[in-house]
Amino acid sequence: MTSIPAALADRYFGMWNTADADARAAIIAETWVDEGSFVDPSFEVSGHDGLSKMVETAHDLFPGYRFTRTGDIDEHHNRLRWTWELAADGQPPVAGGTDVVTLHPNGKIIEVIGFLNFAPAH
């Protein structure tokens, strides 16, 4: 049986890895509250449209790359934390980081704060 945090993480990474805008919008609607926000050193967005445009930008910058959760999910109260990497199939990762996720009582994401552990130089 899949845990609720793992299922949420799967949908979250599915959002990042879905190129089709309509499919991505459906994942976002299922996973995030309407006013959900994401902030890391590269992005600061809110709302479903902002989230989708952020992912589209990531696809433009890293075509053919996928985000993958690494390690376990830490959980306490209404917070989750997981680590991730960005890599092309069969290649070493080009970026990786840690996300801290705040959940609404309904189980949807309110906010993600991302920290980069390593990333390409700009």
Rank of each mutant, 00 (worst) to 15 (best):
L80A: 00
A21N: 04
K53M: 11
H48Y: 01
G36V: 05
M1N: 09
V100Y: 02
G107P: 04
N117H: 08
N17F: 10
A29F: 06
A7D: 01
K53N: 13
P105H: 07
G90Q: 08
T68P: 04
A58F: 13
L116F: 12
G71F: 03
H104Q: 07
D40A: 06
H76T: 12
F67N: 05
F38Y: 11
E30L: 09
L86D: 08
E56N: 06
E30T: 12
L8R: 13
R66I: 12
G107F: 08
I28P: 11
T31G: 08
Y65T: 06
A121N: 14
Y65Q: 02
A88P: 04
T98V: 15
V112W: 00
D34E: 15
P105C: 11
A26V: 11
E111M: 09
G36C: 11
A88T: 04
R79P: 04
G96H: 06
I113F: 01
N78V: 01
D22R: 10
H104T: 04
A87C: 05
A9T: 08
D72H: 12
T102D: 12
T57H: 03
A88H: 09
A58D: 01
V100P: 00
W32E: 07
S37K: 14
A88I: 02
D22C: 01
M1P: 12
E56Q: 10
W82T: 00
I110M: 15
L86M: 13
N106R: 04
F115G: 10
T83K: 13
W16T: 00
L116P: 08
P41M: 05
Q91K: 15
D99M: 03
A21K: 07
H76K: 13
